[in-house]
Nucleic acid binder design. Structure first.
Lengths: 267, 267
DNA sequence: CGGATAGTTGACTACCCTCAAGGTATGTGG
DNA sequence: CCACATACCTTGAGGGTAGTCAACTATCCG
């Protein structure tokens, strides 16, 4: 939250500057009319304190939530209390896209920092998708991007070492935050505790601490007062095996001009 | 593949009996007309041998593939050859839904057993989704189901022990195969090698072998000639912490009548 | 200044990996 | 039918990554 949190609801006329609309406008190329139609569905913003649950796994929910401000996450619990965070959410992210189709939350959605959250009625969004095909496509596209991110995290959890995995997570956050102006190549504000990072990476918080020490002792990163300083982004990405393609930060039209590049890379 | 493989293209009039259409008809409640419209897009079926690559990660692809017969998977490779299988595909599954939105494969799609595969043009499917809203919703719903499955696998990879994870994988396969009539409560034909299972679970094949021994020595399962015998499905599910909800096998209208059940379970 | 939360460090343990050898099943050609 | 090849699975030994427990430190805040 650069510049300090502003957690009061945004003024009435500023809906079109909501980070979710900004993102869809940029990535899906939605026009003024489409954005206005979506903006009309945005219910009043609500403020949540840090670590508060917005939706419980299994709850019936008739709306989807979009994150306006702050950091949040989605997670699942096992019976004995172990938990796995499946997504880290930053401003502009849809928090529970699955509710759009299922009407029931498959995962718990909770804040990490204090957050501002707006909601949209599921039925209304679905109807809007029918009357405005480009909005429907945009929502489907968001779902596909989430899919790609989950698949990549599968790879991290299954086949990357703790060191590679942590580096990858930091690279991913840097790339996503840079896309919304909350990071540059030198780093970003990182409000996650090591225990939360452990629940993302499937490790113990103690091992996360050790792995951070590892990356720090090599001069790749530095941590000070909740800010991550990236000393060498290129090398961090190499260690992680990070290729930002899967995040699809270029939007719906992105990447299509780069034909043949993948074949060339294999040859 | 119960009853032995039939890997020649299906006769022309039998398109509506394609497992993909059967599934969509049942789960999304599509009518005859909608199914016929989709069937019209099905390009001729192709046969692939075991372990052949259908789509390479990074390839530009203008169509999506649906699995008619056999087992297949999706996976990603790391630079040094490690790989992570992100999805096991059985008849009726869409193999590369991401290509529908991105026009480029994010993962490699490959067969496990000999397979029959049909294809649909991505643009044609997208257009059909616009002219037939219920088809568009059904495709989006498939994407959401994939999402839920990936999230659950994240939990398995991050927070379940090898034993729990293997039990969970077997339970998931049993449930999905039962839905297409290829498994019952006593087991199913399991064509995966332990090395492939290792690439699903993020383990070494040797540890998969040991974990199988573990489950067998407790009398939960038995393995003989590529068939998994489940001796005690209830107990296997308990060990796994398996709840089939996330697979959404009941279809688009399923589960909505069971309101309050989640709250009750928490209380 | 006390209290709470978060992070670090050390010692010990356990899960899972690697290497290596042996065993089993299936298929092929003589 | 047998010898052989191949692929897959099993078992053992030893090692490394990551988990647990515990104590200590740092930081933030009222």
């Amino acid at each position: 939250m650069p510049g300090g949190a502003r957690l009061t609801p945004a003024p009435e006329g500023a809906w079109t500057r909501h980070p979710f609309l900004l993102r869809l406008g940029k990535l899906a190329g939605l026009g003024e009319g489409e954005l206005a139609a979506l903006a009309a569905l945005l219910e009043k913003e609500r403020a949540f304190g840090a670590r508060s649950v917005i939706v419980h796994e299994g709850d019936k929910v008739g709306r989807i939530h979009v994150l306006s401000e702050g950091w949040a996450c989605r997670y699942k619990h096992l019976a004995d209390g172990r938990r796995q965070i499946t997504a880290v959410l930053v401003p502009g992210d849809v928090m529970d896209l699955d509710s759009l189709r299922f009407g029931r939350a498959g995962e718990t959605v909770a804040t990490i920092t204090p957050c501002a959250v707006a909601a949209l009625g599921s039925a209304a969004v679905r109807e809007l998708g029918l009357s405005h095909p480009r909005i429907g496509e945009a929502m489907a596209w968001l779902g596909a991007v989430e899919n790609a991110a989950l698949a990549e995290r599968n790879v991290c959890l299954g086949r990357r070492s703790a060191r590679e995995h942590l580096a990858h997570l930091l690279c991913e956050l840097q790339a996503r935050l840079a896309a919304i102006g909350e990071a540059d190549e030198s780093g970003f504000a990182l409000p996650l505790t090591q225990e939360q990072i452990a629940d993302i990476m499937g490790l113990s918080s103690i091992h996360v601490s050790r792995t951070f020490m590892d990356l720090r002792s090599e001069g790749l990163i530095e941590l000070q007062r909740r800010r991550l300083e990236i000393r060498n982004l290129r090398e961090l990405r190499r260690v992680a095996g990070f290729r930002p393609d899967y995040l699809h930060l270029e939007g719906m039209r992105g990447g299509e001009d780069a034909s043949g590049e993948a074949r060339a890379a294999r040859a």
